[in-house]
Structures are given as structure tokens and as C-alpha cells.
Amino acid sequence: MSDVRFTHIGGPTVLIEFGGWRLLTDPTFDAPGRTYAFGWGTSSRKLTGPALPASTLGGVDAVLLTHDHHGDNLDHAGRALLAGATTTITTASGARRLGGATRALKAGQATRLEAPGRPTIEIAATPCRHGPPLSRPITGEVIGFALTWPGQAHGPLWITGDTVYHRALRRAAARIRPGTVLLHLGGVGFPLTGPLRYTMTARQAVRLCEAIAPRTILPIHYEGWQHFRQDRDGIERDLLHAPKQISDLFHWLPTGSAEHVRI
């Protein structure tokens, strides 16, 4: 059984440590107050800064970047951090934009992280749809990550990425059978597009988790930005109406301090 340390830095940014590895998801380290354009007339203001500054992180072996083209997943300070990471893994289009030794993955493809004295990690890209049907030309390419390594007792670690609930996501999750899920929530919406949502709501998350029955659900990316339509209070209100065997799986990571989870 693997003992994994998760440090939630804010938004989608989590430091994951185990077996000598230090992995970082979607680095966002800018101070609050800026407004970021997301294209097609949409934008959002950052309301909360990181719980830890990038300068305190130390070395990072790999950045798992679900997408590079939205400021709430890769901001200016996060982009600067990429140069110091050993490896960055992201979408095919993101790898072209970032250049260098960035590894490109499309949904269904996989790569490995290997180092002497450490467990080999297989990283498979999972499908995301960052909005309603047919929205990909507008919202761009996004992936999630399923991480598998020796010694996992309860199945892979899955980072969903920014996505709504959809059929390809459910099918991929059923194949992976993750034990632990870093679940991007928040029900992102914009005044320009009315009721349309661009990330999962709690109700969608319950449907997904009912289908795959993970052991632990760690919600992230639901706070700190103006475009979130469902914060922790809203998520917890919806969980009151969810089956208890699902709502009991949700565990809220503290920000800025490490939490140990057995995987």
C-alpha cells in the first residue's frame, strides 16, 4: 500500500509526493486580483493567492498540466516554474505551444516516469470535455491523468482535469477503476454563456462516482476564482442529497499543509 502526501496549494495546484517522486498538478502561483481572458469574450478574476509560494516548493520531477491555455490552470508564475521542472506532461497542442522537452499525450495514450530507486509511474491521459457538446473548438484541448505504480492497494490515482460529466469520461473511469480521485469541480460558468457549465458540479460528480465507486474523493479547483458557480458550501449542500456511501467518500484537503492518503 502506498502512502501519498497531497499538499493542496490552491485551485487545481497540488503537490503529490511518494516513493521519492515530487509531482505538481496545474501550477498556479500568481497573486490575486488579476483578470484573465479565456477567449470568446469570457474572463475571470483571481480572488485567492496560493497557500504556498512557488519559491518554497523545492525540486519538481514532473508537472502534470491538464491544459496550458487557461490562466486558472497555468498562470504567469506557474509558467515560469515549468523551466525548473524535470518533465512537463500535457496535451499535444499544449506541448507544441510550450516547446522544449514537454511530453505530449492525447486521451488514451500513456508515458512513464522512471528513475533509479523509485517506483515506475505509468501516466495515462484521460478524456476531458471542458464544456457542453461541440465546445472543444472554443474551450480547447484538455486531458486528465491516471497514475499507476507498484504497491497501489486500491487502484490508480486519477486527476480528472477540467471536464463536465460525459460518456467518454464515464467509460474511461470505468476502465481505470481509480481508488483515489483528485476531482475538479466548481461548475464553472460565465455571464456570456448563461446556464452552461464548463466543469463538473457536485451532482455530476455524484453520478460519476456512483458508476466507479472509488475509495477516496479529493475535491479541488472549486474556489479562488470568480468564474466558479459552486463553492465548497454549494458542493456540500448537494452532497446532503447524495447517497451516503458516496458523500462519505469526499475528503477536503487543507490548503498549504500536507495530508497523507493511503492508496
Rank of each mutant, 00 (worst) to 15 (best):
residue 171 R to A: 15
residue 191 P to E: 00
residue 18 F to A: 06
residue 176 I to D: 09
residue 260 H to K: 15
residue 35 T to V: 13
residue 178 P to W: 02
residue 65 L to K: 00
residue 235 I to Y: 03
residue 49 G to S: 10
residue 252 W to E: 03
residue 192 L to Q: 10
residue 190 F to W: 05
residue 166 H to Y: 12
residue 227 H to S: 10
residue 219 P to N: 11
residue 5 R to H: 13
residue 7 T to W: 05
residue 246 I to C: 06
residue 6 F to Y: 11
residue 80 A to W: 07
residue 54 A to P: 03
residue 109 Q to H: 12
residue 220 I to H: 07
residue 141 E to F: 10
residue 234 G to N: 00
residue 82 L to D: 00
residue 185 L to C: 06
residue 159 I to R: 03
residue 159 I to C: 07
residue 208 L to A: 03
residue 172 A to P: 05
residue 100 G to R: 08
residue 102 T to A: 08
residue 37 A to Q: 14
residue 63 V to E: 00
residue 229 R to W: 12
residue 96 R to M: 14
residue 177 R to E: 14
residue 56 T to V: 15
residue 157 L to H: 05
residue 240 L to M: 08
residue 125 A to R: 00
residue 222 Y to K: 10
residue 142 V to K: 07
residue 22 R to K: 12
residue 66 T to N: 14
residue 246 I to G: 02
residue 138 I to R: 11
residue 162 D to R: 08
residue 221 H to L: 01
residue 184 H to T: 09
residue 222 Y to W: 10
residue 34 R to D: 15
residue 202 A to C: 10
residue 255 T to H: 08
residue 199 T to Q: 07
residue 252 W to Q: 11
residue 122 E to P: 00
residue 195 P to W: 05
residue 111 T to N: 02
residue 85 A to F: 06
residue 26 D to S: 09
residue 117 G to S: 08
residue 89 I to G: 00
residue 130 H to V: 14
residue 129 R to N: 09
residue 191 P to V: 01
residue 122 E to T: 15
residue 185 L to I: 02
residue 17 E to I: 05
residue 59 G to Y: 06
residue 134 L to M: 09
residue 97 R to Y: 07
residue 130 H to T: 12
residue 189 G to C: 14
residue 15 L to V: 12
residue 103 R to T: 15
residue 112 R to E: 15
residue 207 R to I: 09
residue 225 W to N: 01
residue 57 L to G: 02
residue 121 I to H: 05
residue 112 R to C: 11
residue 20 G to A: 02
residue 114 E to Q: 13
residue 139 T to M: 12
residue 48 T to A: 15
residue 118 R to Y: 07
residue 243 P to D: 07
residue 240 L to D: 13
residue 243 P to H: 04
residue 36 Y to C: 06
residue 205 A to H: 06
residue 198 Y to L: 07
residue 169 L to Q: 11
residue 33 G to W: 07
residue 187 G to D: 15
residue 249 L to G: 08
residue 192 L to W: 01
residue 85 A to E: 08
residue 188 V to G: 04
residue 139 T to D: 01
residue 58 G to D: 05
residue 123 I to M: 04
residue 79 R to G: 06
residue 72 D to F: 15
residue 133 P to Y: 03
residue 41 G to S: 01
residue 234 G to T: 09
residue 169 L to W: 10
residue 246 I to R: 01
residue 115 A to H: 12
residue 215 R to G: 06
residue 7 T to D: 00
residue 122 E to W: 06
residue 88 T to W: 06
residue 189 G to R: 13
residue 164 V to W: 00
residue 4 V to I: 15
residue 260 H to C: 11
residue 241 H to F: 15
residue 88 T to Q: 01
residue 238 D to H: 14
residue 119 P to H: 03
residue 22 R to G: 04
residue 198 Y to A: 03
residue 13 T to L: 02
residue 20 G to N: 05
residue 159 I to N: 01
residue 103 R to D: 03
residue 238 D to R: 12
residue 61 D to C: 04
residue 155 G to K: 09
residue 149 W to S: 05
residue 182 L to H: 03
residue 50 P to N: 12
residue 205 A to M: 00
residue 218 L to S: 10
residue 71 G to Q: 09
residue 149 W to A: 10
residue 47 L to K: 01
residue 106 K to T: 13
